[in-house]
Lab assay of single mutants.
Amino acid sequence: AQFIESYVCRMCSRGDEDDKLLLCDGCDDNYHIFCLLPPLPEIPKGVWRCPKCVM
């Protein structure tokens, strides 16, 4: 059997509050909206890229 790795935030390495986890459309990394600098108030609509992919 294969275990699917749960999504974890690249900043805090936690997978809780998954309703606040953002998936980068560039590299598929995950980030909590409140772990980003600056934090986001809510999940953005449409395409989102993490700080690494925006640079």
Rank of each mutant, 00 (worst) to 15 (best):
P51F: 11
S6M: 15
N30K: 14
V8N: 13
Y7W: 06
R10S: 05
E17D: 13
L22D: 00
V8M: 11
A1I: 14
P38Q: 15
D18H: 15
L23S: 14
S13F: 07
V47T: 09
L23P: 12
P51K: 14
F34E: 12
D29K: 15
P38I: 02
C27H: 00
I43L: 14
D25E: 06
P51L: 02
C27S: 01
R49Y: 05
H32Y: 00
E42N: 11
N30A: 15
K45M: 03
E42G: 08
D28N: 13
V47K: 14
R49P: 00
H32L: 01
K52L: 05
P51R: 06
L37Y: 05
G46W: 04
L37E: 10
V54D: 03
Y7F: 08
L37V: 10
P41S: 13
G15Y: 12
E17Q: 10
P51Q: 08
N30C: 12
W48M: 02
A1D: 12
D19A: 13
G46T: 06
P41H: 05
M11T: 07
Q2C: 04
K52N: 11
I4K: 11
D28S: 14
D25M: 04
D18T: 10
P39N: 11
P39R: 08
L21P: 02
N30F: 10
Q2E: 06
K45W: 04
W48Q: 03
P51D: 12
Y31S: 00
A1P: 11
D18I: 14
D29S: 03
K20Q: 10
I43T: 03
E42D: 13
F3E: 09
G26K: 14
F3A: 09
D25A: 14
L37I: 11
K52Y: 05
Y7T: 15
L21A: 04
D16K: 06
L37S: 12
I4Y: 02
F3V: 13
I43M: 14
L21V: 05
S6Y: 10
N30S: 10
L36D: 00
L37C: 08
G26T: 12
W48I: 08
I4P: 09
C9W: 00
L36N: 03
C53W: 00
V8Q: 09
Y7R: 14
V54E: 04
G26S: 08
E5K: 13
D18Q: 15
H32W: 01
D29F: 09
W48T: 00
L37H: 12
G26R: 12
E5P: 04
D29W: 02
D16R: 12
G26E: 07
I4Q: 15
G26A: 14
D16S: 14
G15S: 14
L23G: 10
Y7I: 12
P51T: 03
C50I: 02
S13A: 06
V47A: 06
D16T: 07
G46R: 10
L36Y: 00
M11Y: 13
G26Y: 05
V8G: 09
D19V: 09
C53M: 02
R10M: 11
E17C: 15
I4C: 09
L22Q: 03
L22S: 03
I4G: 05
P41Q: 11
P41C: 07
L22M: 13
F34A: 08
Q2H: 07
Y31N: 02
C9Y: 00
D29R: 12
S6I: 04
G46V: 09
P39W: 02
L22C: 11
A1Y: 08
M11W: 07
E17H: 06
P39T: 03
P39A: 12
R49C: 03
D25I: 07
V8W: 06
D18L: 13
K52W: 04
L37M: 13
K45N: 12
E42L: 04
H32V: 02
V54F: 03
D28A: 14
I43A: 05
L21W: 08
R10L: 12
I4R: 05
K45Q: 05
W48G: 02
G46D: 13
C35M: 00
C35V: 00
L22A: 06
L21T: 08
L36A: 07
Y31Q: 02
C50Y: 01
R49G: 04
L23Q: 10
S6C: 04
I4A: 07
L21E: 03
D29T: 10
C12G: 02
L22K: 05
C12H: 01
V54W: 01
K20V: 06
R14T: 08
I4D: 11
F3D: 04
N30Y: 08
E5A: 05
D19F: 09
L37W: 15
C12Y: 01
P39E: 12
P38W: 03
R49D: 01
P38M: 04
D19S: 10
C12A: 00
S6N: 15
E42T: 13
N30I: 15
M11K: 15
C50W: 01
E5R: 13
D18Y: 05
D19N: 13
G15A: 11
D16V: 12
I43N: 07
C50E: 00
Y31H: 01
N30M: 07
C35K: 00
P39Y: 03
G46E: 15
R14S: 15
H32M: 00
C50R: 00
V47C: 07
D28I: 15
G26M: 07
F3T: 11
P38D: 05
G15F: 12
E42A: 11
E42Y: 09
P39F: 02
R49Q: 14
C50K: 00
L36R: 02
